[in-house]
């Protein structure tokens, strides 16, 4: 009984926050609603008997991905003002598409035979870890390489050009006179250094 009430609550929060993510006009609010959505997804995992997945969801998505999004919002907006417009109207086409997607997924789930009667199939973290390193080793390694490639790619895009040697330490060394216009390195100023300096 408690589990059904809890699931109802979690589902309600999930749907409401998902709606706010796509309908809120303020970009920062959108990101924060996404945070609610991701944290509630973790709660849903707990109810489904997957506490390990829930904590990983909190660490990686809510703690990690969302932080990066906040950085994105902060660094792209020239003025860190209160409202960053995020207009997602007209939404008619999106509504039809979403309804169609729901129909396809619902049909697929309803049409699948042999689903377990109860969603509660506890899998120990040990078994999960073992299956990553045996049964699903290839997928696991391919994913790791994919992430590595994405990371290297992001760094290459962010750098724009090769920095001059020791450019990184230069601002600290020149602490005396203020270089308002001309940085010591000939390379163009890096957008990514703005936060650090």
């Amino acid at each position: 009984m408690i589990e059904q009430i809890a699931f109802g609550l979690v589902a309600a929060v999930l749907i409401y926050s998902a709606l706010r993510v796509v309908s809120d006009g303020n970009l920062v609010h959108t990101v924060l609603w996404l945070g609610v959505l991701l944290a509630t997804t973790a709660a849903a995992y707990v109810l489904l008997g997957a506490p390990f997945l829930a904590t990983i969801q909190l660490i990686l998505y809510t703690g990690g991905a969302l932080t990066l999004m906040l950085f994105g919002v902060m660094l792209t907006g020239r003025h860190a003002g209160v409202t960053v417009p995020n207009d997602s109207r007209p939404g008619g086409g999106a509504l039809i598409l979403a309804a169609g997607m729901f129909g396809v997924l619902a049909a697929a789930i309803m049409g699948t035979k042999g689903l377990p009667a109860s969603p509660y199939v506890p899998v120990s973290t040990r078994a999960l870890g073992a299956s990553f390193l045996t049964e699903h080793l290839l997928a696991f390694e391919v994913l790791s390489i994919l992430l590595l490639v994405a990371m290297v790619g992001a760094i290459v895009i962010a750098r724009k050009s090769d920095p001059a040697p020791a450019a990184e330490d230069a601002p600290a060394a020149n602490a005396g006179p203020v270089h308002a216009v001309a940085p010591p390195a000939p390379a163009p100023t890096h957008a990514s250094n703005e936060v650090a300096s």
Binding site: P51, F52, A54, T55, L58, I59, G63, T125
Partner: peptide, 11 residues
């Protein structure tokens, strides 16, 4: 919790 340590770090 089985995942106690991770829970503390996540929260």
């Amino acid at each position: 919790l089985d995942v106690g340590v991770l829970y503390v770090l996540a929260v």
